[in-house]
Computed example of a mutant assay.
Amino acid sequence: MKLPQPPERLRRPARPGGGPPGGRPRPVRELVLIAVLFGVYKLGRLAASGRVGEAFSNARGVWDLERRLRLPNEAVVQHALLHSRVLVHAADSYYAYVHFPATAAFLIWIYLRRPAHYRWVRRVVVALTAGGLVLHLLVPLAPPRMLAVTGLVDTGAKYGPAVYGAPQTDTVSNQYAAMPSLHIGWAAVVAVGLVVATRTRWRWLWLAHPALTTAVVVGTANHYWLDGAVVAVLLATVLAVVRPPARAALALGSRRVAVAAGPMRTARRE
């Protein structure tokens, strides 16, 4: 008995360089893309350096605005950390070692296990990072650890591990790019991506990652509350425009991958 052929739209060949429709993109292309985007981001951050006076003026403005808005003082969070040397060291370690590895591990996992979702996540990360870079360029901002009026301690420098050196000699990062906090933004992307891409009832616990990241970046005096609020608004805007794949599209993508892989299985059997 001859089986019916799949519709023509399901028998389209793989896209050149992009993998099968609905499947994961080619890994080499993705690695090159990520490297290029990271290079552009770092160059953009460094291009924003050198505006020290403006960065401190903006920092004082942000600090005064938070007080007028009656936001909780960042010192409350830091004082809770400083009661325990182990706790403050753990917070500094979280700030230093979790941000990039956690994001990279998430991108690798979603690339391998949820390729259709990976395309969506990639667009969200690119859009969020681009928006953050624009704000870094427009609004240079000294972090609260540098602003004497805050009374906050640079916990990284005092207790370790330290992420940054002296701002005057730091050629790797722009320390006057506190607004918005991409530590919080990327942590939120990881959490939202895992909530959307998985179905376990425990998936909502991933929201603890951006919540903990917020407490860490504020408690270590690397960011203000408003840095987190701004990145939350920016991410919400990106998510409103860059929509996750619908279930129907995911099912269609899976069928396309299966159809594309069919001839390969037949060839192996023969």
Results as ranks from 00 to 15, higher is better:
A191Y: 00
Y41Q: 11
G228V: 13
T237N: 07
F38Y: 14
R68Y: 08
A104H: 09
P16M: 01
A102I: 01
L82W: 04
A215W: 05
A127G: 09
H209N: 10
L112Q: 06
P167M: 04
F100P: 02
G132S: 04
A80E: 09
W186E: 01
V231E: 00
G165V: 11
V192T: 08
M179L: 15
P210F: 01
A162M: 03
A91Y: 01
T155G: 00
R265I: 11
T237G: 15
L212Q: 03
L182Q: 04
G131W: 01
L239M: 08
F38M: 13
A55H: 05
R203I: 10
G160S: 02
A221C: 10
A248I: 09
V233A: 15
T155M: 00
R85W: 01
A178R: 00
P244W: 06
D154Q: 04
A35D: 12
L205T: 13
A55Q: 07
V28L: 15
M179K: 08
A80W: 10
S49K: 15
A90R: 11
E30L: 10
V241T: 07
R145F: 07
F38D: 10
A59N: 10
P27M: 12
R119L: 08
N174H: 06
G39Q: 14
M264V: 14
T214I: 11
R199Q: 14
N222A: 05
V242F: 07
A229P: 02
P161N: 09
R85Q: 07
L152S: 03
G253S: 03
A260F: 13
A248F: 08
I108A: 15
I108R: 05
R255G: 11
V76K: 10
V62L: 00
A105C: 05
H79G: 06
V216K: 00
P16K: 02
V163W: 03
L207E: 08
N222C: 05
L107P: 02
P6C: 12
R67E: 09
D64Y: 10
A130K: 04
A260K: 07
L87C: 07
V121R: 00
L226C: 03
V189A: 02
V238Q: 12
V242N: 06
V153F: 05
R203C: 06
R70G: 09
T237W: 14
L194D: 04
H83E: 13
P101K: 06
L133Y: 02
V62I: 07
R70T: 14
S181N: 07
L250H: 05
T155Y: 00
A191W: 02
T200L: 12
T169M: 11
A90C: 12
K2T: 14
G23W: 02
L3P: 13
W225Q: 03
P27T: 11
Y118P: 00
A80I: 09
G18S: 13
A14Q: 13
G160Y: 01
V216Y: 01
P161W: 04
T200V: 14
G262E: 15
R255S: 15
